[in-house]
Design a protein around this nucleic acid. Structure first.
Lengths: 215, 215
DNA sequence: GGTTTGCTGGACTATCTCGTCCACTTCAGG
DNA sequence: CCTGAAGTGGACGAGATAGTCCAGCAAACC
């Protein structure tokens, strides 16, 4: 994945233009994350980013292109986060545990949901043509997990009976579902339980006593 | 829970009126399920239910009350479905397996997502005051699972180390997350993997060899 | 330094959607 | 019947919002 939206902007931008575009994008992402796609309208975005109405059109000809750019932006952040050294490519049970702990500990996100998941479910039924874009992001995400799990299997850290593809789906789904429930309940418990149960399940495949006991 | 919206309609309705109201509600639920809350507007609903604009106002003074009624309606269906004899109160691993199989086998739902989950995430960030209503439904749903799991534990069918509350959250989250991913990918695999992994995890607590082996 | 290109501002319009209004019809009960 | 309440139809109004238009400004490039 590279920025497929960025590449479809043939007009050259000066440094100043690029800066303005980035500012719009950043504020759009924040607003959409906090208030949803629907509530993020021209007026809000104008005052938040400090730009005029025509600039929105100038850099993003319509709302769909803006949403697509925001999806790209959020996707980049998520993929980068999961590829960071912190999780070492998800090649150990501990890495998955750290990952779960991170979201349980971080206070805010559960109030607004997953930056991509809640965006996705808000617009997946609309006529915005963002289906493929979203599908690709979730595939990438799943693949990060799956590749980690396959590596663990090759390294003998988890049993050969484990199904990396299945477990990868389980982790992403546990996160998305847990976020939705936490968001609705305004309580982190559903997310915590869901993520920890997923890690617990992974642990049942662990081959070293250390990992298998740690629950 | 009883129909909290129904009870807040003080005006008496004749049989005919009741029928019209039910027809509006049914079509609204279908439209919202298929196209989302946003896209379900007066005009669409009018032609779908074959009523005039003023009737919508007559039976549902504003859109929020309509959405609340639809949430109630969907919640009833879901709770009834989960309480049906089919699943015997979720007091065995097999019941959970049947439950998972049902959604994996049923073709359509994954295309439009969960009738409540996708509705929830679409409107949870709006100013519609449906937060508490939704939260209660998901609690009920979770409690159906939790009570089944607690019964299983009392009956000695699963280990005492199992945490019914945690596992209940896991099941609901696995379903919601799996549905979202399936909906985006237009593929049932994520839902299947997520649900089956959840059932597999439950099975690791099973005390009878039959259940524990069946994976 | 001048010209061309990109950048910015803000008013304006077309459109959509919720909800209202009022006239008319059907139905229930005395 | 007759009367009033409930049900119905369709046009209309108010408000919001995405996107347009055009004029003025800044900056790059020759």
């Amino acid at each position: 994945m590279d920025g497929s939206v960025r590449s479809q902007a043939p007009q050259k931008l000066t440094d100043k233009g690029e800066a303005t575009r980035a500012r719009i994008l950043r504020h759009a992402a924040e607003l959409i994350y906090a208030k949803g796609v629907r509530a993020t309208n021209n007026e809000l975005l104008r005052s938040a980013a400090g730009v005029s109405g025509s600039q929105l059109t100038h850099y993003f000809p319509n709302k769909e292109s803006l949403v697509l750019a925001v999806i790209d932006w959020q996707a980049d952040r998520i993929v980068q986060f999961h590829r960071s050294e912190r999780f070492a490519g998800f090649d150990s049970v501990d890495a998955f545990q750290d990952w779960a702990d991170f979201y349980v500990a971080s206070g805010r996100p559960f109030e607004d949901g997953c930056s991509l998941g809640s965006l996705a479910s808000e617009i997946v039924k609309t006529d915005l043509d963002v289906h493929d874009q979203l599908a690709r992001v979730f595939e990438q995400w799943r693949d990060i997990f799956r590749e980690g799990l396959e590596r663990m299997q090759r390294l003998g850290r988890i049993d050969s009976s484990a199904d990396p593809a299945q477990l990868a789906h389980m982790f992403v789904a546990a996160y998305q579902g847990g976020m939705l429930l936490a968001q609705v309940a305004r309580d982190i418990a559903p997310l915590r339980d869901s993520l920890y149960a997923a890690v617990d399940h992974l642990r049942t495949f662990a081959t070293t006593p250390d990992d298998a006991d740690a629950s």
